[in-house]
Amino acid sequence: MKETAHLLRSAENTSRLLASIERLEKGGGTVRELVDRDPEPASTKTPEGGTPS
């Protein structure tokens, strides 16, 4: 919601956002799969029984 509020601060961005919503409501847009990323950075992983370095 913070991002949307930020976009609505300017008239030009408000116009773009509303136009995008209208296109989506009319069936526009592209459905995409979300990428499931590893939420834990590799640097924090430890070998079995090990401790972080």
Score class of each variant (00 low, 15 high):
V35H: 03
R16G: 10
P41M: 11
A19K: 15
A42N: 03
T14E: 12
S15L: 07
D38K: 02
G29F: 00
E22T: 12
T14C: 13
E22H: 14
L18W: 04
S15F: 11
L17S: 02
S20H: 11
R16M: 12
I21L: 14
T44L: 14
S20T: 14
P41C: 03
L17F: 13
A42D: 10
E33H: 07
R23Y: 04
P39V: 03
T14Y: 08
E22C: 14
T46E: 07
A19Y: 08
R23Q: 15
P39T: 09
T14V: 12
P39E: 05
A19T: 12
L18T: 15
G29T: 01
L24S: 11
D36E: 10
T14M: 15
R16Y: 11
G29N: 03
G50D: 12
L17Y: 14
L18G: 04
G28T: 06
R37G: 04
D38Y: 01
I21Q: 06
E48W: 04
P39F: 02
P47A: 12
R23M: 12
I21E: 09
T14I: 00
D36A: 13
T30G: 00
S43A: 12
K45S: 01
G50R: 02
S43R: 14
G27M: 04
A19I: 09
R32G: 03
T14P: 01
E40Y: 10
G50Q: 08
G49Q: 07
K26Y: 06
S15N: 14
K26M: 07
E25I: 09
L24N: 09
S43K: 10
P47H: 11
R37H: 04
K26L: 12
I21D: 01
G28Y: 00
S20G: 14
G28Q: 08
E25R: 14
S15E: 15
L34A: 04
S20P: 02
G27S: 05
R37A: 14
G49H: 07
D36Q: 08
A42P: 02
L34R: 09
V35Q: 06
S15Y: 11
P41H: 05
G50S: 10
S15H: 09
